[in-house]
Design a protein around this nucleic acid. Structure first.
Lengths: 159, 159
DNA sequence: ATTCTGGGTTGTTATTACGAACCTAGCATG
DNA sequence: CATGCTAGGTTCGTAATAACAACCCAGAAT
């Protein structure tokens, strides 16, 4: 998790990837989102090395995605489990985007995996770009611009 | 980019991360989305090692995110550039999600980086979960379930 | 007192990333 | 036609990470 991603930390995508840009972190968050909290649950469901898991959990805690919480099972000593924080739960947008892309562009012969729904009504939900007025804009029509570049729109290489 | 991410390739998040789950791939896609196409543009904007860039470009091409295209500048020999495919452009949802999360939860002292807008009207757009009927559902109310688990909703450990 | 168990730590080896040096196909120049 | 220039790489040697295995440790149960 080095802190030099390219020349710019100015991009929020890069700042997010500083926390999440490796093979395991988002999978841990996914499992946490599915209800897992314990070291051995992550270990078993992901099949990853214990030292790497310990390292990623510590990193996710240090960045405020997970929070450690003590718990005690009957007849067991006190241990720590890892709970998604409010910022961590917001990563549902990232998981939904990755899930949608994988479903659409890397389909599996296996079942359609997980579907995302409104927890209240059970309606299926999909990620969409929407305007403040609530109008849906398709992804192919979305562009990203720098806030101050409105006038000089001719240069080809950003930054 | 090993093909064993945990025990399950059944999850579309894992399948997406098989292509995108490293430090650089999504940043390359981001730069491509901002209009960059050439080896040296990626190299200069991201500051990454050339062999790693060559490897990532080849991987992204092999997974159909980028497509090579010949071009020729005046007085230069023919070269290849890398263009986002339709599936690659769909990654705007992933970039938007990462960007939104980074803006909200890892704010920088620098400018608000990029904003996403409707290319037609210029209106700002945000990623939201919406139902088929067009109702926006906040991320904290979204749950992910397996399509067939509707009846047995008590088990704590998915799979 | 000994064993069991969840949750780790500490090695040792295999992968992967990095930086610098080198290569290469064509075009331009003398 | 020999030389050099340039974008876009490849090929090193080395540094950092990940993976795998062995071990540890604090209680609780026996």
């Amino acid at each position: 998790m080095s802190s030099v991603l390219g020349t710019d930390q100015f991009c929020s995508v890069a700042r997010s990837l500083e926390v999440l840009g490796d093979k395991w972190s988002l999978l841990i968050v996914r499992q946490a989102f599915f209800g897992e909290t314990r070291f051995s649950q992550f270990r078993d469901s992901l099949g990853m090395a214990k030292n790497v898991l310990a390292d990623r959990l510590a990193t996710l805690v240090s960045f405020g995605v997970l929070a450690p919480r003590a718990y005690r099972e009957d007849g067991e000593r006190e241990r720590e489990e890892y709970i998604l924080t409010a910022p961590g739960r917001e990563l549902v947008y990232v998981l939904g985007a990755l899930s949608g892309w994988g479903d659409r562009h890397r389909p599996s012969d296996h079942s359609p995996t997980r579907i995302y729904q409104d927890g209240e009504t059970g309606e299926r939900v999909e990620l969409q770009f929407v305007t403040a007025a609530g109008r849906v804009v398709h992804g192919t029509d979305v562009v990203a611009t720098e806030p101050l570049e409105r006038a000089a729109a001719g240069s080809s290489a950003p930054r």
